[in-house]
């Protein structure tokens, strides 16, 4: 049975419709004379038709409803698209989170209606009740933010002076190199901070280049 191994490979090609015309002719000539290969081929053909002959069965009538009833609830699902969206837009997501947190923070600051003074930068101030004094000869290198109070600038502020519900008792252009900003509304208060954030980003960009 020297024919077997090689012929079986050609037989598989014939079955899989991958044989060339020459191979096919060679194979059918061969099985005319070789009963072993002929039997083998017919049995494989029969096997194929038996397996292909298996009927397609239908699932139960309630199949679709059963699947739908078992799916995780839609409200759980509805969080998904947001999640996906956030994954695709990380910078917008981060910025939005930042603004939300920042607004909350600023709002809480706004709500403390007590007197408050902050130096964003270097320098010392003095206090007289609810009045902030920048003493003569003192240089504030940065911004001065005063809330619910008064400010008296006798020295210098090399930055902005932000007055939130506050007033300036003495300030001339010579004393403040930056702007004197009066902020009396919460939106302005928030706007001021957002503006300063963007200025900060711009500064980063500038340094980066």
């Amino acid at each position: 049975m020297a024919c077997l191994k090689e012929m079986v490979q050609i037989m598989y090609k014939v079955l899989d419709q991958e044989a060339t015309e020459v191979e096919e002719r060679e194979f059918f000539d061969h099985i005319n004379t070789c009963s072993t290969c002929r039997e083998h081929f017919l049995e494989l053909k029969q096997t194929e038709s038996l397996v292909k002959g298996l009927e397609t069965k239908e699932p139960s009538e309630g199949f679709t409803q059963a699947v739908m009833a078992k799916l995780p609830q839609p409200h759980k699902k509805s969080r998904r698209p947001a999640k996906v969206w956030m994954r695709h837009h990380p910078i917008i997501t981060a910025a939005a989170c930042f603004i939300i947190l920042m607004s909350g923070y600023l709002f809480s600051l706004w709500n403390q209606d007590s007197f408050n003074a902050v130096v964003q930068g270097k320098g010392h101030v003095q206090y007289d009740g609810h009045t902030v004094i920048v003493p003569k000869g003192e240089v504030i290198k940065g911004d001065l933010i005063v809330k619910n109070g008064k400010v008296k600038i006798e020295g210098k502020v090399q930055g902005d002076v932000v007055l939130v519900n506050s007033e300036s008792l003495l300030a001339s252009a010579g004393h403040v190199t930056g702007d004197i900003e009066q902020v009396d509304q919460i939106m302005e208060w928030i706007w001021y901070h957002i503006k300063s954030i963007f200025t900060m980003f711009a500064a980063f960009d500038y340094e980066g280049t």
Binding site: F63, T64, M68, P74, K77, P81
Partner: peptide
């Protein structure tokens, strides 16, 4: 996009 019912068509 969260259209739960559309899945029935796929099924």
């Amino acid at each position: 996009k969260g259209d739960h019912q559309a899945f029935a068509e796929l099924v």
